[in-house]
Design a protein around this nucleic acid. Structure first.
Lengths: 328, 328
DNA sequence: TTGTAAGCGTTATCAC
DNA sequence: GTGATAACGCTTACAA
C-alpha cells in the first residue's frame, strides 16, 4: 500500500489539513508542527498523489509537448531544453510526436487537453483555425509559428533569409534556387516568402523548386532539379536537405561550392561536423525551448510575459568553410 | 466551465453510473440507454478527466520514459516508436532526459513514480541496486540493459560484436582498437566485454583506448590514439564516434578504409548517408521501443509476456561500401 | 439493467 | 494555528 497524507498526519499527530498546509506553505504553521510533519513525511517517504492534487486544484503540473517529428534533428534540441526547463518548475512533459500529420496533431491535442495545464506546440502543422479552436480552452504557446493572438516564441527566419541572400549576393550570385520543406510547415512558408521578397528587392532571380521531404533523401532527390536550373546557388529548407544536396552534387560531379553553393537552415548538431563547409542559418533550439516554457508558465500564472505574448529569437548565418563564389 | 460526467448524465436523463458504464463497457447497458448517453456525450464534447479516473482506479494511463540523452541520434527513433505504440493503447508518455547523469536519473524516476503506471528505462545509467529499488514499487522495463529480474528488451550486442570481429578477421585484421563510450552505459560494457572475449578466442589483439564522449568530438579526439596504436582497425562505441574518427583520420591523412578500418554501432539515421562507406552494427531502435511498450503493457495487465520477461532483438552488421582490408 | 452512494487523496473553506 | 468537512470527477460495489 502506498503512503498517503493521512499516514503522515497520524504519525505526526496532527490533522491532514496541517500536513497539507505545511507542505504548501510552511510558514503558515507553527514551527513545532512543521517540524513534526516534515519529520513524519520524511520517515514514511511521503510524496503527494498528483492525480488527487490535480483533481482539487485543477492543475496537473503537466505540459503537453507536441512536435511534428522527433527524427528531425532540430527537435531533440528543443525538446531537451523544454523538458529540462519544465522540470525546474516541477512540471512534467507529456510528449507527442505527430509524424507530420496535421489531423493527427489536432486529434492528439484534443485527447490531451484535460491532462495538461497547457501546450507547447513546436512547429505545429495544423491549420490556423484548428489551432485557434484550442485557445481559450487551454493555454497554448506555439514555437516557430504565429497563429493570430496565440502567444509564441519564434525565430526571425525572415532575417535569416535576409542574411543568407545578402551573403550570396555579396559573393556574386544572381540566381538561386529554393528547395522547400513540408507544405504544412509555417517555417517553410516564412522562409519561402522572405526569400521571394528579398530576391525581388535585390534583383536576384529565384527559382522555386517546390516542396521536398525535409530530410536527406528529399535534398538528394532535388539535386538534379537544381543542376538543371540556371542557378549558381541553392537554399534548402533545412540542413538535412542541404546534406542530401551536397551528397548528390558530389555524385554528379558538381563541386561544392565552386560550381554550386549550398545553404541550409537550422544548424543541426551533426551537420557542421560531417560537412565542415556547410553554410547554414542557425536557430537556437535550446533558447527557443527554454523561452517557450517560460512564456507558458507566465501564462499559467496569469502574469503577462515581461516581453509581451510574443518573443522573437535571432537567427545567425554560419559560414564554416566558404559558401563559394558565383564569380561569373 | 468544463463538462463532466454529470452534465452528460443530466442531458441523457440517466445516472452518472450509466454514463460511466456506457463508456467503459457499452454492452453492459441497454441499447437505448447507450445511444442516448453516447449522443449526449458527443453533443457536449465530453471526455473523462484523467486525474479523477486515476484517483479511483489507481491507473494513470501514463508511462514514464527515461532516456540518457535525446541528442544522441539513436534515442529519437526509440522514443518515437514508444510514444506511437503507447498511444495505440491510450497511454501517454512522460518524457525524461537525464543528460547522462546517473543520480539525476534516480531522482527523476522517484519523482515520477506516482504519476505513471510504469517505466520504460532506455539505457539507464544508474547503478543496479538503485534500479532494483524501484522494482516492486512500480513496473519497470529496461531497454538495452539487464538488471537482475527486471523485465527487459535488449539487443544482442554481443552477437553484433561477434559479427564485426568476424568480419574484420576475415579481412585479415589481426589487431583492433576499441573506443569506449560512457562508463555508466551497460551497452558499452557489454560491447567491450564481448569484444575482449571474441578477440581472445580468435587470436586477435585488442587495444582498449578507454572511454570517450559518445559523440563526434569524442571520436575525433580518440583518433590520434588510434593512429598511435599498432592496429589496422577500430571499433567505436557508436556511429557518432565513428564519424568523428573518420573525420579526424581524413585530416591526418590516414585513408579509410585503406589504412585504417572503422566500424561503428547503432546505424543512426544520418550516418550512412553522409558517410556512405561507414560500416556499422545496426540495432533497430523502433523495434526495441515497440517491444518495450508491449512488454510493459503485459506487465500492467498482470499477464506474463508471451516470450517471458526478457526479449532479445537481433543486431546486424551493415557493410555499406567496404570495411577495407588489413591485407598486411 | 439501472441508480445510489461510498470512496480514491488532496486542497480549500470554514469554524473554532 | 488548527481541525472538521465538503468538494473535485470518476469508478464500483451494492441495492433495487
Amino acid at each position: 500500500m502506498v503512503v498517503t497524507i493521512k499516514d503522515v498526519a497520524r504519525l505526526a499527530g496532527v490533522s491532514v489539513s496541517s500536513v497539507s498546509r505545511t507542505l504548501a506553505s510552511p510558514e503558515s504553521v507553527r514551527p513545532g508542527t512543521r517540524e513534526r510533519v516534515l519529520r513524519a513525511a520524511a520517515e514514511v517517504g511521503y510524496s503527494p498523489n498528483a492525480a488527487a492534487r490535480a483533481l482539487t486544484t485543477g492543475r496537473t503540473y503537466n505540459v503537453g509537448l507536441v512536435v511534428p517529428d522527433l527524427a528531425n534533428p532540430f527537435f531533440p534540441t528543443v525538446v531537451k531544453a523544454i523538458q529540462s526547463r519544465a522540470r525546474e518548475f516541477d512540471y512534467s512533459v507529456l510528449l507527442v510526436d505527430t509524424d507530420e500529420d496535421p489531423s493527427a496533431e489536432v486529434e492528439l491535442i484534443r485527447k490531451l487537453v484535460k491532462q495538461v495545464d497547457g501546450f507547447l506546440l513546436c512547429g505545429p502543422r495544423a491549420a490556423d483555425e484548428d489551432l485557434r479552436s484550442f485557445i481559450g480552452e487551454t493555454p497554448v504557446v506555439t514555437v516557430n509559428r504565429r497563429v493570430g493572438p496565440i502567444p509564441s516564441v519564434i525565430c526571425d527566419h525572415t532575417d535569416g533569409v535576409r542574411q543568407a541572400v545578402g551573403h550570396l549576393a555579396a559573393l556574386g550570385h544572381r540566381a538561386i534556387a529554393y528547395v522547400g520543406g513540408p507544405r504544412a510547415s509555417a517555417v517553410n512558408r516564412e522562409r519561402a516568402r522572405g526569400l521571394r521578397s528579398m530576391c525581388t528587392s535585390m534583383g536576384i532571380e529565384l527559382v522555386d523548386l517546390g516542396n521536398a521531404a525535409p530530410n536527406f533523401d528529399g535534398g538528394a532527390a532535388a539535386a538534379d532539379l537544381v543542376l538543371a536550373a540556371p542557378v549558381t546557388a541553392v537554399l534548402a529548407y533545412n540542413d538535412l536537405q542541404a546534406l542530401g544536396l551536397v551528397s548528390r552534387f558530389k555524385e554528379r560531379g558538381a563541386s561544392v561550392p565552386e560550381q554550386i553553393s549550398v545553404v541550409g537552415f537550422d544548424d543541426i548538431p551533426l551537420a557542421g561536423q560531417v560537412s565542415p563547409r556547410l553554410t547554414t542559418i542557425a536557430q537556437r533550439g535550446d533558447l527557443l525551448g527554454r523561452a517557450a516554457v517560460d512564456l507558458l508558465l507566465d501564462l499559467l500564472q496569469d502574469r503577462v510575459g515581461a516581453g509581451g505574448p510574443r518573443r522573437v529569437m535571432p537567427t545567425q548565418l554560419i559560414v564554416r568553410g566558404s559558401t563559394g563564389p558565383a564569380a561569373a
